[in-house]
Design a binder for these strands. Sequence first.
DNA 1: GATGAATGAGCTTTCATTCAT
DNA 2: AATGAATGAAAGCTCATTCAT
Lengths: 202, 202, 202, 202
Amino acid sequence: MSSTTERVDRKAKKREKIVRTALKLFAKQGFYTTTIPEIAGKIGMSVGNLYNYFSSKEILAQEIIREISAYLGSRIREVNDSDLHVREKIRRIVSIYFETARNEPEMIDFFLRVYLSNREVFHEGCEGMICVNEFVTEIMIFFDDGVANGELKNQDFFSAFGLFMGYLGGMVFLNGERILPRRLESYIDDISENIYNALKVP
Amino acid sequence: MSSTTERVDRKAKKREKIVRTALKLFAKQGFYTTTIPEIAGKIGMSVGNLYNYFSSKEILAQEIIREISAYLGSRIREVNDSDLHVREKIRRIVSIYFETARNEPEMIDFFLRVYLSNREVFHEGCEGMICVNEFVTEIMIFFDDGVANGELKNQDFFSAFGLFMGYLGGMVFLNGERILPRRLESYIDDISENIYNALKVP
Amino acid sequence: MSSTTERVDRKAKKREKIVRTALKLFAKQGFYTTTIPEIAGKIGMSVGNLYNYFSSKEILAQEIIREISAYLGSRIREVNDSDLHVREKIRRIVSIYFETARNEPEMIDFFLRVYLSNREVFHEGCEGMICVNEFVTEIMIFFDDGVANGELKNQDFFSAFGLFMGYLGGMVFLNGERILPRRLESYIDDISENIYNALKVP
Amino acid sequence: MSSTTERVDRKAKKREKIVRTALKLFAKQGFYTTTIPEIAGKIGMSVGNLYNYFSSKEILAQEIIREISAYLGSRIREVNDSDLHVREKIRRIVSIYFETARNEPEMIDFFLRVYLSNREVFHEGCEGMICVNEFVTEIMIFFDDGVANGELKNQDFFSAFGLFMGYLGGMVFLNGERILPRRLESYIDDISENIYNALKVP
DNA sequence: GATGAATGAGCTTTCATTCAT
DNA sequence: AATGAATGAAAGCTCATTCAT
């Protein structure tokens, strides 16, 4: 194996390490209250070197949201590719979301508390929804398929999207604030049922 | 009229001016990207004097969310006090929310982008939901009444609350990002219907 | 005397102190090798406070060149306002320049080594020659008067200006580098004579 | 041809490439605002390798000024070696200077804006005028010859040198700032005449 | 010779907060 | 109540230089 390949590999790995570490810190503390020295320090690398990988704090945050979107998008694609009924698809998507919130809470937190809340950070480079494109696209496919099958009411996509994502985001938020009396997963049935009832053909 | 009264009045008025100005700036620019000198400057008062009214930036933000909560709570109380059917009550609450988002967008934006997203700012002094108590209480009353009347399914309150608030928040967010193809108000019927279908007794 | 007036006075004085100190450091060490902490430290004020007076390092440098231009312009205006022959006016201007280079060398050094050499610092705010307007205008008046009197050859102004200023600048530079074998002032006669011979009507 | 010779050749060529590229960047952007990675990047070589050729940024700048001095010196030597009258020699030197400013502006710009203005960069290694020795020597020869021929006034060399170089430098500066109303070359006659009048035996 | 990741000191700038007046 | 100059810690970012490969 050539040493060039090794170097490229190691660089990619370090890049991932930065993304993961920054994701955790941003999600826990917020964008403005997390500092570059803090991120670099946690990894054990120098500040200057971190800037060899990401040219600014904003660029780093943008890369993170792109990766989250890709991850969630790929998980939902599996559901879309299946032959399940809409009712079950909804359950699966809710499950994926809550499972992610449980196992990798930083992803959902980053989405809600950094991406959605600090739009100025994403305005240049992530205009509109281009950085969460993969994720939004899959939700759109889910919805279109359901309408095509005659299972879902044919309404404005955004009304359905807002319900789905707003609802799930709201629950994860309440969970994060330790306001929910029960484990997040225990709500899967109720919530899926509510969403299904809201969206189904009457 | 005693001059003491006058002074108290003037002080209260200036206090309100600070709250309103800070609300607008925080909502538009975010908590960390708005500075105290900026707020003071916009009012035409000195920074030092602003600190005579609010002892810190955080305390100011907390006061703001309390006032927003009180305002929305009082608006929803009117709905709760009425004899309308649940279906119509939902429509009214959705309308109030969207109307506020239209006429005083800074309130909803502050709620979504400052209060919900920068929890560290509110942890001391607004633990849990005590600073939005008035608002949450009214939503709770709405829900309990509906269940008592046999119109709403008896489920975990937070599941219903997350649906309601997450959905509305999501729509206002999409509207703020100029992603919605139509005016926010045009969604009132669809959304109210979706919420009603999600929450009603099957 | 009102305390407001006192405060304004003190602020103006501190402002001047900053300008003078920064002028000296910039002139001696150059723009990029002089730091804001260094300037503030030498005055005994905090870095943050310095920024209350000048919003950036560039703005500070621009203010400095404006003051230098005003000073030299006013000195030359006295010559222009006199009834001397051109030959003597040249001598006086050369004397003023060299006297300034002797007594306040930082002014001329700043002019040559900061203003003329770091154009990028002055491009926004000092485009063209607007920050040295007062000085250039007086040289222009000197020249126009001489031509009007029939004492000076009528040639392109810039050719005359380049000669005058390039020559003086060159001599001060050589002096600063300790290359000149004699005191700067000892060259006044030779140089004035050379300039006169170059510019006079043949 | 031995491979050793080839290697030496290639090394010399790369060295020249570095000098030429750095010259352009330093001249356009200044010494402190040009970075080593930028120079290396423009050539397509690595920073590390560039340091194999020049052990520091300062050393590189010093090498550049030496090459410029050698080039201008050799051009002026041709004039000195000729049998022309002083009047014509002056014209030729002015022409060479302006022609260089037109065709290879980076040389003159580097001279004026990097070498003359950032003395700290050249203090160790280029003390006094040793790095521009070749150029200054030729000007000195021109002047001494003129005096010996009885064509030029016998005055302090530096007074004549300052006139000559200050004047030309000033004009090129004004040209670079786009302040001159006409092309630089169109001033050759006026300027040569002015210089001749200033220096000639009265 | 060649690479480019890595270092780390240091820069400009910001801002919540204080305090003398 | 009111002013705004002053503080100072800390942030984001840069870059000459080094060194393992």
